[in-house]
Amino acid sequence: MKAFTTLDGLVVPVDRSNVDTDAIIPKQFLKSIRRTGFGPNLFDAWRYLDEGQPEQDNSRRSLNPDFVLNQPRYQGAQVLLARENFGCGSSREHAPWALDDYGIRALVAPSFADIFYNNCFKNGVLPIVLPADVVDGLFRDVAANPGYRLHIDLSAQTVTTPSGASHGFSVDEFRKYCLLNGLDEIGLTLRHSDEIRAYEARRARSEPWIFGGAA
């Protein structure tokens, strides 16, 4: 996994609550058996005027000029500012894959849906929860200041605005450790294989029906 330490990134605001993963990456792109290449189809239905199809040349499609991602001032954004319950709905990891592939490295919102939040960490994308009034203020500041950037420091657990205001955020120690070091969680878990085997042996005695397939 990619490590995340600090980021100084341009901010793009997506001002809607309950943005679901169907909106982040529509279903037709889920037919892919790869992990990459989803960036051009991030927010596909909002971003383009036509209906996108997999393996299409996206550079030839008409962009929706009203959608925030298409506005010149937000090109190259690495931080996505969002509203509550971002990433709700389907568990598709294609959502963080699409965000990552597009170039988004961090998200800031008052809340995230559980599965999406989890999926982000597995892909080196940092979801940051800040209080709703702080996020509200950030939406106002972004709108008022072209080129608005945020400085994010995972180690210090802070988001700092251009004016120097600093907002702390919380993150689980273990997740932070994995993300800072870009660690492979499977590799880490396999170090505890003996414990897993011992656990399995206990369960096989107490609940033998768990093991083995159909009768």
Partner: peptide, 16 residues
């Protein structure tokens, strides 16, 4: 779970 977690379960029978 997400796909990374699917892989984690395939490989370790566990989840974090």
């Amino acid at each position: 779970i997400g796909t990374s977690e699917v892989e984690h379960v395939l490989a370790t029978q566990t989840l974090l």
